[in-house]
Amino acid sequence: MHHIYCPYCEETREEEEYSYTGEAHIERPKDPASITDEAWGDYLFFRSNPRGIHHEMWFHAAGCRRYFNATRDTHSYQIHETYKMGELPTITAKTIAADTLAAQQGDAS
């Protein structure tokens, strides 16, 4: 069971207080009428399903009732960070790959 830090409450609380609400940073098209069916379909239905780092929304339903984002590893379930709506993640698959590479090079030297 996850232990999740709410960036609004500034507390780590039990997963029971939260609900998962899907991939983060999916922006609603500004002018839906002007985009193609395909683009609208992408927005509606297509989500990434990575094994590893995933940015996703959580809702502190039984707490402050704020939506926020989490960077979570879908394989290990490690939550690397949580951040407020409108903010960008500081940890991504790219930064982790770079850190791993740097660590390996550090080991090698």
Binding site: T21, F59, R66, Y67, M85
Partner: peptide
């Protein structure tokens, strides 16, 4: 709440 907080704050 979702729409207010994520798209139309």
């Amino acid at each position: 709440e979702l729409w207010h907080q994520t798209e139309w704050p």
